[in-house]
């Protein structure tokens, strides 16, 4: 096999080797940040993320859809994002037991470690997103799932010109690079 260790640069994003992660405690420090023309991209950490699926999931959790502003984000309170007809992403919520809840007819899986979470702030945020997909604040959408630069992401609005993105950690490195390149292209 071809050894490509030098072809692919070492990851920019990394939490396995970071600080006290080795002892099982999530870091609370702000992490990687990139700034550009009227825009800042940074990685953030959320307390907990859980998928809850079931016919009643959307009603049970007050769900937010595009382009409404998700309350609770600023205060690090619990909020939920609609992913599918029958699935929500609970953020910063209470601890839930993984598995099938036969009482509530809900399937529950913790995914706190599945995602890297990025925050885009600034007037040019939407211009960066528009490099990755066809999107506008005037076209509503029930689900926060999108393909951005070809990657599946959870995308929602957390303030007037502030957006939050969850991306599968395995793809986060190249997705981050797309965002950085797009920020460069704003100039």
């Amino acid at each position: 096999m071809r050894d490509d260790r030098n072809k692919w640069p070492s990851p920019v994003l990394n939490d396995a080797t970071r600080g006290d992660a080795t002892r099982g405690e999530p870091t609370s420090a702000e992490t990687e940040t990139v700034s550009g023309l009227n825009i800042t991209l940074s990685r953030i950490k959320l307390q907990r993320q859980v998928w809850v699926s079931g016919t009643s999931a959307l009603q049970r959790f007050k769900c937010h859809s595009w382009p409404s502003i998700t309350p609770g984000f600023k205060q690090a309170q619990a909020y939920s994002v609609c992913l599918r007809r029958d699935r929500v992403l609970l953020v910063n919520g209470t601890l839930m037991k993984d598995g099938w809840d036969a009482q509530l007819d809900l399937a529950i899986t913790e995914v706190s470690d599945s995602y890297y979470v990025f925050k885009l702030v600034g007037e040019n945020s939407l211009a960066v997103l528009r490099r990755g997909t066809e999107i506008s604040l005037t076209t509503p959408s029930a689900s926060a799932m999108r393909k951005l630069f070809g990657y599946d992401v959870v995308l929602y609005r957390t303030a007037e010109i502030e957006f939050c993105l969850h991306i599968d950690r395995a793809n986060a490195e190249s997705f981050w690079a797309h965002l950085v390149e797009s920020i460069d292209n704003l100039a």
């Binding site: 007809r85 066809e134 076209t139 509503p140 959408s141 029930a142 689900s143 393909k147």
Partner: peptide, 12 residues
């Protein structure tokens, strides 16, 4: 048009 999400482009 996705019956749930609404209009999205064909790549999705």
């Amino acid at each position: 048009p996705c019956p749930f999400c609404g209009e999205r482009d064909e790549r999705e």
